[in-house]
Write a protein that binds this DNA or RNA. Structure first.
Lengths: 136, 136
DNA sequence: TCTTGACTTAAAGTTAACGTTAAGGTTTAC
DNA sequence: GTAAACCTTAACGTTAACTTTAAGTCAAGA
């Protein structure tokens, strides 16, 4: 089964020009073409795209994804190297998550603090309102 | 206690030109100056910077941080609005974390897959080696 | 006194990752 | 068969977040 660029665009939520851009940047080489030069994506291409998105959305730069793809094209001799790359990246993602969780705590504390402040503020307004009403 | 731009740079790991840039962009207004125009950061400025870094490192754009800062400058009437902003942002951070965790699983699966493939590859090489050794 | 080095500003440059436009060829629906 | 909706490439534009450069001020040490 083959897919047009539009179909792939809908599946991956990447716009057609982004798919072309990725191809141009060496992230997805050897996409098949029809006689008239129109891209025909295979299931394998879709799987590649899925991994590419995974790496990209976890912060890997396109440059480095290209390096990974180039290694893949060189065959099984690069399996170990690719594995190392992924292990390093995994640690980076874990660090990202840990960092975000720490910041999440901080945001949470701020929310609590602001909520308290807001209640105090409402109380103050209420008191002033009561006093000014009493002094009528 | 006051700090020079260099001291703040060391404390926050933000380079001096970045601190000036943030100030110019309205993220840290009203930093005190010496008679000759040199910045003197207060403890309060440092606390502000800490929150700014928290928001920035969790993906909030500088533009939006500026909006948050501008609201803060308007006083207690904006407490509710600021609180809402943080609650929305909190959800975004939670989504980020959830997304990353999903991707982390995928990376992990790939690592497992590659490790397996690598072992198979070594076995193959070993077999070929053994055969060619046997046929010597 | 002079020069070294940290500070100041304004403005231009850089980078990544797209996004847009122009100019044209192809396919499909009516 | 023709118009709309696709597809193609090349090249230039945009945005965010810095980063660098140029040109100048100021205080301290040899």
């Amino acid at each position: 089964m083959n897919y047009t660029i539009k179909q792939v665009s809908e599946k991956t939520h990447l716009k057609p020009h982004v798919l072309r851009y990725y191809e141009r940047e060496g992230l997805l080489p050897f996409v098949d073409r029809s006689e008239s030069g129109i891209r025909r994506y295979s299931e394998e291409d879709l799987e590649w795209l899925s991994l590419i998105c995974c790496l990209k959305n976890t912060g890997m730069a396109i440059k480095q994804i290209r390096e990974f793809v180039e290694l893949s094209l060189q065959g099984k001799e690069t399996l170990k190297e690719r594995c190392s790359m992924l292990i390093v990246h995994k640690k980076e993602v874990e660090n990202q998550i840990a960092g975000l969780q720490k910041y999440l705590c901080k945001v949470d504390h701020k929310i609590t603090y602001f909520t308290d402040q807001y209640e105090k503020y409402l109380d103050e307004k209420c008191e002033i309102g009561a006093v000014s009403h009493g002094s009528d």
